[in-house]
Simulated assay, not measured.
Amino acid sequence: MNKRRCVGILGGTFDPPHWGHLRLAEHFSRLLQLDQIIWLPTGQSWQKEGVTSAQARLAMSEYAVETLHDLFLDHHIYTKIEISTLEMDRQGPSYTIDTVKELRALYGPETSLSFLMGEDSWAHLHTWNDWHQLTDYVHLAIASRPGKHPEAPATGLLANKMASDPTLLQSAPSGSVWLDRELQIDLASSDLRPALAKTTWNDAVYDGIPPQVLEYIEQHDLYRNG
């Protein structure tokens, strides 16, 4: 019996991309035996103000993906990585439900599609446009953060979708939610931006952001004017 094709979708504003994104991609590549990861920068963010330009976020994403390629090679992970401008090319606000519908049509009905996210996104999932339809098209794989956090509203609302084992996300095209407790990375772009705005960067900046991304930020003087 042939293995079902498994694809992970890592979406976000990536403003900026950081090691948390890369470690999340590495973790779920192993856990879900992903054949491919789609790195998907948001186009027009409808829930966030003052987002860095799409051009800059795409350029930073390209450097981040280069780093991720090297990380995968070093760790003998053979998941392919592709940057998609699907949301950036679309007119109007970037709604994840529209994106997963397009990706489902592109990859067909049998491919396992898993939307990868951190616990901060999971906490606000219930505010997304038509969020309750997402599991009709994809699985949801959530990486938790250290410490105690209030239960996300979606946890109760999607209780019947919660998977007892991550292999369930490999064996079906969509429909399951896996809340992972293993990764535990406490890193967010919203915490890094204030540090990047300062004249002198602290260790959190250098430890949190891949060097090539940081070099691009410095060259283009991003965040210090924001």
Rank of each mutant, 00 (worst) to 15 (best):
129 N>R: 11
133 Q>G: 02
136 D>M: 04
194 P>Q: 09
146 P>S: 07
127 T>K: 12
159 A>G: 12
133 Q>D: 09
173 P>N: 06
123 A>Y: 04
180 D>V: 09
179 L>Y: 11
176 S>C: 14
146 P>A: 04
215 E>P: 13
150 P>E: 03
167 T>Y: 02
191 D>Q: 08
133 Q>F: 05
171 S>Q: 15
180 D>L: 09
154 A>D: 09
122 W>R: 00
192 L>W: 02
145 R>F: 00
199 T>F: 12
200 T>W: 13
198 K>T: 09
183 L>P: 01
180 D>W: 08
122 W>P: 01
217 I>N: 02
200 T>F: 14
171 S>L: 14
186 D>N: 11
216 Y>Q: 01
176 S>D: 13
172 A>V: 10
178 W>M: 01
139 H>D: 06
142 I>P: 00
137 Y>T: 07
185 I>D: 03
209 I>E: 03
192 L>S: 01
128 W>D: 07
214 L>V: 00
142 I>H: 02
147 G>T: 05
149 H>E: 11
174 S>W: 03
193 R>D: 06
126 H>W: 04
200 T>R: 14
126 H>P: 02
148 K>R: 13
170 Q>L: 14
161 K>S: 14
188 A>S: 15
140 L>A: 06
143 A>R: 01
132 H>M: 08
147 G>Q: 07
174 S>H: 10
147 G>K: 03
132 H>I: 04
148 K>T: 15
134 L>M: 11
149 H>G: 08
138 V>A: 04
142 I>G: 01
149 H>N: 11
151 E>D: 14
196 L>E: 08
154 A>Q: 06
162 M>G: 08
197 A>C: 12
207 D>Y: 11
177 V>C: 06
135 T>A: 04
132 H>S: 12
187 L>Q: 06
160 N>W: 04
161 K>Q: 15
173 P>C: 07
165 D>H: 13
164 S>G: 13
175 G>V: 06
178 W>N: 01
211 P>E: 15
209 I>Y: 03
176 S>T: 10
171 S>I: 10
164 S>Q: 12
161 K>R: 15
144 S>H: 10
131 W>Y: 15
150 P>T: 00
217 I>C: 03
123 A>L: 09
191 D>F: 03
132 H>N: 09
194 P>D: 10
174 S>G: 06
196 L>W: 06
195 A>G: 07
201 W>F: 04
205 V>S: 07
150 P>F: 01
182 E>D: 09
122 W>Y: 09
176 S>E: 12
205 V>M: 08
124 H>S: 15
127 T>W: 10
136 D>C: 05
139 H>R: 02
144 S>G: 15
132 H>L: 04
144 S>D: 10
140 L>V: 08
175 G>L: 05
202 N>R: 05
175 G>E: 04
